[in-house]
Amino acid sequence: MKFAIIVFPGSNCDVDFYHAFKDGFGVDIEYVWHDTENIDEFDCIILPGGFSYGDYLRCGAVAGFSKVMEAVRHHAEKGKLLVGVCNGFQILTEMRLLPGALVRNQNLKFICNTVGIKVENNQTPFTNKCEKGQILNIPIAHGEGNYVADAETLKKLKEKGQILFTYSDNPNGSLLNIAGVCNEQGNVMGMMPHPERAYESILGNEDGRLILQSIIAFLQGGWKNE
């Protein structure tokens, strides 16, 4: 089981993720620079938070065209796990690997806070250690986290169980209170809250562990998608 964190110019949660997986769970994990071509050896790719390419034009728009992202797209098409958190989520929607888009927060403010998110679907590689309906307290830190999609897409997301997390108290205006979604195949997940910033009590909260543990359990074969 091998993890990779893709590092773009402007990524700033890469070290948090590395620390959480490596020191928290002893997982084999490597930083992968954005101009790498081959990522075949990895089972799970993480797109970390931050401000890749300065968030120029639109958040995540430029990162999607990095050299490594062709391989990342291929990785996802093969059904392997791909996780985007915060800016990583924005990159995944820009690449159309996840539906919808993330626009300016409704109140136009950058919000840095810990919020409650509800687990809507626990039958996924990313949530199998959570209870359905469980509330996790996870930090958010974003200016563009307002999830939008057209009515048809929202309906489909709901029907197919692709909405994984919803905000208990919507901070940013996201439609259907969406905080995290997965693709239809269930191997690509994006979320605005940062589980890697809440994986040990010294950080104030360890609810994020459940998400990281779910991914590890899935890769160890401890949980199968039914």
Binding site: L57, R58, A61, V62, F65, T93, E94, R96, G100, A101, V103, V148, A149
Partner: peptide, 8 residues
């Protein structure tokens, strides 16, 4: 491809 995100 880049200048606009046609989703939004």
């Amino acid at each position: 491809k880049l200048l606009a995100n046609t989703v939004i």
